[in-house]
């Protein structure tokens, strides 16, 4: 399967990564090679096969609804690049 530059641009937007023109060029070639290799999977007939969404036979993992100590907001904000009061601060989104 080939992947055109428009698709890569769209996917990069979905992934919120700004790509430079030279990066796009390089990536396009690399992804082409990788996807070609991955296309090997199309040789197999998997119609009757169940997808392995989880590898262990466990389901519905529940725990008791008990209070436990969690991070204080002050602690959670320690690594923030920018904060105001008890909040993470980001560039303004409403004009």
């Amino acid at each position: 399967m080939s992947i055109d530059k428009e698709t890569i641009k769209h996917v990069a937007h979905l992934a919120r990564i700004e790509l430079q023109a030279n990066e796009l060029e390089k990536l396009s070639g690399e992804l082409h090679g990788i996807l070609d290799f991955i296309d090997k999977l199309k040789d197999l007939n998997v119609e009757q096969v169940k997808p392995a969404s989880h590898i262990l036979p466990i389901s519905n993992v529940l725990r008791e609804d008990k209070l436990h100590v969690s991070l204080t907001s002050q602690k959670a904000l320690e690594n923030a690049p920018s904060k105001k009061g008890n909040f993470f601060s980001v560039p303004k989104i409403i004009e």
Partner: peptide, 22 residues
């Protein structure tokens, strides 16, 4: 770029995400 680590400098939120990750 919101909760931890590196943040690119820009005053637009969408650009902040994209440039931070780039």
């Amino acid at each position: 770029g919101v909760q931890y680590g590196y943040r690119a400098k820009t005053d637009n939120l969408l650009q902040m995400y994209k440039l931070t990750r780039a």
